[in-house]
Design a protein around this nucleic acid. Structure first.
Lengths: 212, 212, 212, 212
DNA sequence: GATGAATGAGCGTTCATTCAT
DNA sequence: GATGAATGAACGCTCATTCAT
């Protein structure tokens, strides 16, 4: 696709925005700082974006679009639902683990307000959830996943678990590999935390027999 | 009206702050609006709090303190780790499900910035994680929970799942009972999403060749 | 004269005001700090003074009243105008040199605004100028002072010179005796700066051609 | 209108500041009033000055710089110390007498606080004093001024006298020519107030023989 | 008289956005 | 398209003063 010559300016602005938002936070970030880091004049930003808020929105849109496209492509390469879930987890954690500044923007800055969150939930995040939901559904149909589980809860639980791994990684000072957590998270998610034979919250050790 | 300090003024201010923060977001919230909703003068707020930010911090501190105390008390009443986990989940979802405005503040406004998040993570949230971690550890020792799972990951996954249920509930327009989700979440968490016999992401049907 | 028991409170407040005004400046001075230094409640100040500004006005009034009374008494003890001028200079510099905080208030804080200055000029300062003017007049009548000099200019010049000694002393970090300057100032004031024989700016050596 | 910086905006702002500071006093002066009088937006002031205080400081710096330069130039034109002193006095009084508002700022507003005064004393005022001191020194060396007088006292006395003329002129309602006072002040300063033959504070009329 | 909690008016400054060049 | 000087709305906080106790 033909790109206008100055499209690299747009890109530079977005990259500068990620850095400044990550370092200062959305509100404390100064448009003029983003402009200067992108080596453009303040006013130039307004030729490419509607305003400060649009920087955040555009950032989210573009990153999510690519993330979801890639995820879809990778998912096509593995056959079973459990494997697909692992692909999703790995992809999610790898994507965020690659660029800490971007991760900060996604985990923190994009959650400034219910207004933002609703907007994001309604757009690409919905797509992401659908993607996961479809995998779950397939798994429930082909018998690899427990069919009695409410799909929405399963999706949210997986997303929430992954999301928390990322947030925790951001706030941690240690610099571990985020994507190494994909395996244990998926293992936990699929097999559960309970030991075999005592699985389920209602089943209790035999000795406790009379308790309700 | 008594000119004696403390009255219930402090409490009224905090409650007003919850409402205004939830409606407008922390940054857009006006101190004067909080004051007027609390029926005190603007300056009075500064007799009880250091500033706008201190309102948020105090809110978090007081709610978390009570939440954790209650959780501890409830945990003492049940014997096994799986049951304790259900208590935690129920308590978590019930607490947040009771006051939507407070939930908004906790899920959205308190996560404005890495500064806030680090501060909170370092204080009560740490306590909350420890509480959960201790339960997991007990379960792993008495054999009710799989001992090979990395405890930190388990804690974060559970917290993340619960956290996402709350966030999702806030953003949803439907007004379902949040605490009803405790059961399926804990069931999923303990038993896993995979059907028995096909558990584990690595195990694939022997003749998986044709699976899509 | 019978003084009400609590008159010592009034005095304590004024003394505290001098200290705080001197340290912080009038505008930056906090009424509450004055109250706390005087060991009274904030509101108590308003039982003795109309407001913050009244503290400054009262301070000026009382100090000037006493200063002028003392000056008058001391003046009665010496007979000639030149000696009286020395008495005035000594008294002026001694009074201010005794209490640096008070001097700061008089030299700096009381000159905050034309409003203050006009008020003060119109009251006690006018008295002080009259006192000096009367001495000058006496001197001019009895022949000890040059009669052709415009009295007002003489008074202002003397006051200005003394005033500058005080201001300079306040701002200086060295801790010299301010009243030691009375002698040279009066000497300069009476005899002039010019050497005898070359006095007067208009008189130039007849053959001035070679003067450097 | 040109959007180019510097225009005459900076100058307009300073002139507006002089007027507003003179009328309201530094503390009561509103930045927004200065802006509106200068016909610029409030924010524009901050493109040229660091803040309200910087307006005062810049005012002082620029006026003093020019004043001292001019004084130096004029001094070079007259040969003797007594004449130089008259030049200084005339220049001082003329400069202040030309712009009452500016004079108010210099005599009143710039003396808000010891902080300001120390700052000013340490900068241009020091220069001004040095200028005067050099003239005195020259006069003492060439015999036109009494060598036994302490130079610092002489300088302060002259400055103080001139300063008081200005202050007094400002506070007076009558609108006389300030620079007309230069002659009598310098005459008094050089020849002293005492009549010839009775000069000096220690010499007393013979008739007064027995007084101490 | 004394207290001190409560009041609420008041303002310097920042910064996202515009628009003449 | 690009610039960056100019704009001006917006607000958290302080503190002199009041007044119920």
């Amino acid at each position: 696709m033909a790109r206008r010559r100055s499209d690299d300016k747009r890109e530079r602005i977005l990259q500068a925005a990620v850095k400044v938002f990550a370092k200062k936070g959305y509100f404390a970030a100064r448009v003029s700082e983003i402009a200067s880091k992108a080596a453009v004049a303040d006013g130039t930003i307004y030729l490419y974006f509607k305003g400060k808020e649009d920087l955040l929105v555009s950032l989210f849109d573009e990153v999510m679009k690519e993330h979801i496209e890639q995820a879809r492509a990778e998912l096509a390469l593995v056959p079973t639902a459990p494997e697909k879930l692992r692909v999703i987890a790995e992809h999610h954690l790898r994507a965020m683990g690659q660029n800490r500044d971007l991760a900060v923007v996604f985990q923190v800055e994009l959650r400034q307000s219910t207004k933002f969150m609703e907007r994001f939930t309604a757009s690409w995040l919905q797509d992401y959830f659908s993607l996961m939901s479809a995998v779950i559904e397939d798994g429930q149909k082909d018998g690899s996943l427990r069919p009695e589980l409410p799909r929405k809860v399963v999706v949210k639980a997986l997303f929430g678990a992954l999301d928390e791994m990322v947030t925790s990684w951001i706030l941690s000072r240690r610099d571990y590999d985020l994507d190494k957590l994909a395996a244990p998270v998926v293992d936990l998610f699929l097999r559960g935390a309970a030991s075999t034979g005592t699985r389920g919250p209602t089943r209790r050790p035999a000795l406790a027999g009379t308790a309700s």
